[in-house]
Simulated scan of single mutants.
Amino acid sequence: MDQITFLLFMYSDVCIVLGLYVYLLRIKKLIGFQLGMNISVVMGGMAALLFGVLLILQYPFHFTWITIISTLAGLVTGALFGRLFDYQSFVTGLTNGVIVGLMSPMIGTVLEMTSVFVWFVHIFFALCLLTILISIKRS
């Protein structure tokens, strides 16, 4: 993966996560605790997965630091999204982000078709976001 593609993916992922957080911050009173817990789990896990896979593909010989960074990214993202709703969502988002953050660099190191997997994960992320937005509108 070249540097431009890496930066484009990272920038778009961070902007999407921040945009969803700001949107949820404004309408958090309309969302139930079950949906809030699911949102925190999805966002913590997806942030950790995206960061871990993209970073390990870009910097393959820095496994320890990338594991730490992806774990912290998942932890912080899951905790922030969970904090919007209640304490159970906070803890669930935090722990899911940590678990996926620890595993995602391992997934990235064993990939054979890296571009196919990166596109698959981003399409999966987009479908998760679409599902979250539809669920919010219906709640």
Rank of each mutant, 00 (worst) to 15 (best):
M43C: 05
V76R: 05
W65R: 14
V42T: 12
V42Y: 08
L72E: 09
F51H: 04
F81R: 00
L24F: 15
G36Y: 00
V41S: 02
G82K: 04
L54M: 08
V53Y: 07
M43R: 01
L57T: 11
F61R: 07
I56V: 15
V42G: 06
G74N: 06
H62C: 14
S40Q: 11
L49G: 09
L24I: 15
G52D: 10
K29V: 03
L25E: 06
L72D: 08
G74A: 08
L54C: 04
I68G: 02
Y59P: 14
L25A: 05
L30P: 02
S40W: 09
F63M: 09
K28W: 01
L80S: 11
A79Y: 09
N38Y: 06
V76K: 05
M46E: 05
L25W: 07
G36K: 01
Q34L: 13
L80M: 14
I66G: 02
K29W: 07
S40K: 14
L72Y: 08
M46C: 08
R26Y: 11
L54I: 05
M46Q: 07
L50W: 04
K28F: 02
L72S: 09
R26L: 12
L25M: 04
G44D: 02
S40D: 14
G78H: 13
S40V: 15
F51S: 12
P60C: 15
F33W: 09
F33Y: 13
L49Y: 10
I31A: 05
T77W: 07
F33E: 13
M37K: 14
F63S: 10
F33T: 14
T67C: 13
G78R: 08
L84T: 02
P60A: 12
L84V: 03
G44N: 04
G82W: 02
I31N: 08
M43E: 01
S40C: 14
F51M: 11
Q34N: 13
H62L: 12
T67R: 09
V53W: 09
A79W: 11
T71C: 02
S70R: 08
R26F: 08
A48R: 03
I31P: 01
M37H: 11
H62Y: 14
K29F: 11
Y59W: 14
M43Y: 00
G32E: 03
V42D: 06
V53G: 06
A47E: 00
G74C: 06
N38I: 10
M37A: 13
W65N: 15
V41F: 02
I31L: 07
L49V: 07
I69P: 00
M43F: 05
I31T: 06
S70W: 10
T64E: 03
Y59T: 12
V41R: 01
L54R: 03
L54H: 06
L72C: 09
L50T: 08
R83C: 07
L35F: 01
S70H: 10
F63N: 04
G52H: 09
V53D: 03
L49C: 07
G52N: 13
L72A: 11
A73T: 07
K28R: 07
L80K: 11
G32W: 01
L55K: 14
L35T: 10
